[in-house]
Design a protein around this nucleic acid. Structure first.
Lengths: 148, 148
DNA sequence: GCATAAAGTTGACACTCTCAACCAATCAGG
DNA sequence: CCTGATTGGTTGAGAGTGTCAACTTTATGC
């Protein structure tokens, strides 16, 4: 057991994952920052996204999101449309090239995931995700409450 | 299952973990950057650390390590001693306050880990770490080879 | 209408990571 | 020993990431 504790495992894993993701994307001639990738994916996943919904979904500061979205707009991957429900916000719409890119990005992420999990069974991968998602919940919900 | 794929789980988990770690450290009046925490821990874990060994252990760029180490020196948490084996490098020695701080940091990390895993059994946590470490290996070893 | 809150934007700043150039010590060959 | 290549470490520059606070515009509750 080379890595002493949960802390180390998390840091190493995240670092390794990010490096693989960037390297794999580069191999596909894509040099988008990881935050842009994730935001674009989020925007494409659900219709009617707004900056707010993306910020909530990614659990990131809205200032951060504003900048990421500007980047995506500059790259011509998304556009903004006026939101009929609230004139303070705009709906985020992936452009044609944005949608195209997301398909590639999904494939790239799958490639990276396949590499990381190449020695694991599907069951193990599921179990890992299940445990990870539980930890996320534990980290983000106030404190107590055992059930749910 | 709220989070669509491994990618998302990893990003969310890492973000959630870092926020918890910083918040918990702050609650203990410690405002050390996470990279400093990790480096200091690494230095204290093994005698005879050098910048190189820490860079390898953390899988980080040596430039990054240099800066982290300067920070730790400025904070009086480590000192450098000449390395009899190689005059190019210096041995990294935790100071008394460095050693003390590491004890606190370990407790803080344990506190965070306890929170994240509060709904998991010890067995599940072990399994998570086991799977995570395998993924790290898969990410960092060249490619093929199925056995080991 | 007015106060308050929410959606986004902007500025400022700290932290993280990477690349490249560089210095000093080591090492390998002759 | 001298030279060249390599290695440990430092420095500069720049991109990416995260957070906080101030601010504008629009919505909401009284």
């Amino acid at each position: 057991m080379p890595y002493p504790d949960l802390s180390d495992t998390l840091h190493r894993l995240m670092h390794a994952y990010k490096m693989q993701l960037r390297a794999t994307a580069l191999r596909h001639q894509i040099s988008l920052p990881v935050s842009h990738i994730r935001a674009l994916k989020g925007i494409c996943r659900l219709e009617g996204s707004t900056a707010r919904s993306i910020a909530l979904a990614m659990n990131r500061d809205k200032a951060q999101i504003t900048r990421v979205l500007s980047g995506l707009m500059e790259s011509g991957l998304i556009a903004k449309a006026s939101n009929p429900d609230d004139r303070r916000s705009q709906l985020l719409i992936p452009t044609k090239s944005g949608k195209q890119l997301v398909q590639t990005l999904i494939a790239i992420e799958a490639e990276v995931a396949a590499r990381l999990t190449r020695t694991l069974s599907a069951k193990e991968v599921d179990e890992f995700r299940r445990l990870g998602n539980i930890m996320i919940d534990n980290a983000t919900t106030p404190e107590h409450h055992t059930g749910e």
